[in-house]
């Protein structure tokens, strides 16, 4: 499958925006009192969300997890509204109710971000069921980590999705760590993709730091899903370059392991490819980098200048006031 120049540039841009956004958050969360709550980042894993989302149509749905920033930005969420939400501001995409961990952006069909590990797959079954029920040509993507594949809900969801041939792409972002546990310490099978066999669906292992490989796998899975052949499990092998959260000292991650994976940066890889293929010039790349930085700086300014919600706004948005007729 040939990937167009435009698609490669789109993915490069998407990964760069995500990296700049999170590099900024890495900085900001160290400043006392700046960002409330935990800070959980996907730095170095950008090829997964950017590659998968590049394969999607606007009507497709994504379900994300605690490492969501890249997925949401790649899906086209407004960086200003995301940053304001992370700051806990009223102008945030969820009015300060979700914070950095549960960002929901229904405007771009990012219907929910769940931080309950393994919470996403059963919900993806539901959204995909709705897509099938309405005979839409659309799919649901569910992003989750290697830890989630140990939850019972993951197995229930894969079984049901396969049984009903639901249009779901289960994307496992295997970043080699679930909390402080290295992959081998929490899962016996070498590849999580092998679990697809148990549910009679295609399973594929992909280099999760190669955005074009991720994109190709997602295109193939999407094609299978919309042609009513059911779900696919894609395992993207990647690496958690930062800790579980930014407060994590990473004492259990070998320094040389981290360094080796930082070398395998998915952005550098695509940039080098694009440069050598003549898809982009050095100047144009630098200009793109500068533009992404500007977007992030604007988002920070927007967030900082935005007001906090007033305390009693906490009481809003629990229920819809239904009109029953």
């Amino acid at each position: 499958m040939q990937i167009t120049k435009e698609k490669k540039i789109e993915m490069l841009r998407s990964m760069l925006l995500s990296r700049q956004f999170e590099d900024k958050l890495t900085e900001l969360c160290k400043i006392e009192g700046k960002i409330p709550g935990m800070m959980i980042l996907c730095t170095g894993q950008e090829a997964v969300g950017s590659g998968v989302c590049a394969a999607l149509a606007p009507e497709d749905i994504i379900i994300s997890n605690h490492r969501s920033h890249n997925h949401l930005l790649a899906r086209g969420a407004d960086p200003n509204a995301l940053m304001a939400e992370i700051y806990g501001k009223r102008t945030g995409c969820n009015k300060g109710k979700s914070g950095t961990l549960h960002l929901a952006v229904p405007e771009v069909n990012a219907l929910c971000t769940t931080t309950v590990v393994g919470g996403g797959p059963p919900i993806a079954v539901g959204t995909a069921f709705a897509q099938q029920y309405r005979k839409e040509e659309s799919v649901t993507v569910c992003f989750f980590g290697d830890g989630a594949a140990d939850e019972g809900s993951f197995h229930e969801a894969l079984n049901l999705a396969s049984l009903w041939r639901l249009p779901v792409i289960f994307v496992c972002e295997n970043n080699l760590y679930a909390g402080a546990q290295r992959y081998e310490e929490h899962t016996k099978v070498k590849d999580i993709a092998d679990r697809a066999i148990a549910y009679a669906m295609p399973g594929e292992v992909v280099d999760g730091n190669d955005v074009t490989a991720v994109y190709r796998a997602a295109c193939k899975a999407r094609e299978i899903a919309v042609s009513e052949k059911g779900p696919t499990l894609i395992e993207c092998k990647t690496y958690r370059c930062h800790g579980h959260g930014e407060a994590d000292l990473q004492l259990y991650q070998p320094k040389d392991e981290i360094a080796a994976w930082v070398e395998k940066c998915p952005i550098d890889k695509l940039r080098d490819e694009a440069l050598s293929e003549g898809l982009i010039s050095n100047d144009a790349y630098e200009e793109m980098n500068r533009k992404m930085n500007e977007i992030v700086e604007n988002a920070v300014r927007f967030a900082e200048e935005s007001p906090f919600p007033s305390p009693e706004e906490a009481l809003e948005d629990v229920f819809v006031s239904s009109r029953i007729s």
Partner: peptide, 11 residues
């Protein structure tokens, strides 16, 4: 989960 997702998607 089927209920949650299907409801989120409009059913």
């Amino acid at each position: 989960g089927l209920a949650v997702g299907a409801a989120a998607a409009g059913l």
